[in-house]
């Protein structure tokens, strides 16, 4: 199962719309990392509003993916974590997702643009 990764200038947008198997999650991780590297993306927004289960494995892979993306030079925002998913992850004992989170994709793009502007990349043409 391939999760589409859309390019918007030098930001990438991706939305996980179906329940992923472990193999799908790993495939998604390598697609994200490859795509960030290929277009030298300054940021990526990962929307998981359609996921109604995020278990410790998925949380680990998402968290790792965020770390990998940052290592390449991209900012990462995760959007749309469902309230019951947030409850469950915290109840399980950890703030399992090691990336900044926002309510929705729109906010994610705003936040990415702010972050990128703060970094001051000269060729960030995402803002006026």
């Amino acid at each position: 199962m391939k999760i589409p990764i859309l390019r918007l200038g030098r930001i990438l947008l991706t939305s996980v719309q179906i329940d992923l198997s472990d193999n799908d999650v790993l495939q998604f991780q390598s697609d994200v990392v490859a795509q960030i590297s290929e277009v030298e993306a300054l940021g990526i927004a990962i929307d998981i509003s359609a996921l109604d289960v995020v278990d410790s494995y998925m949380a680990r892979v998402l968290s790792d993916t965020a770390g990998m993306a940052r290592m390449l030079g991209a900012e990462v925002i995760i959007s749309g974590i469902q309230p019951f998913v947030a409850m469950t992850l915290i109840e399980m004992g950890r703030g399992l997702i090691g990336a900044d989170c926002v309510f929705n994709l729109e906010q994610a793009v705003e936040r990415l643009n702010e972050r990128i502007a703060e970094r001051g990349d000269k060729f960030s043409y995402l803002r006026d």
Partner: peptide
């Protein structure tokens, strides 16, 4: 298993 180590103890809390 390369997970977070939250599997069994985390499950018990749910």
């Amino acid at each position: 298993n390369g997970g977070l180590g939250a599997g069994l103890p985390g499950t018990r809390r749910l």
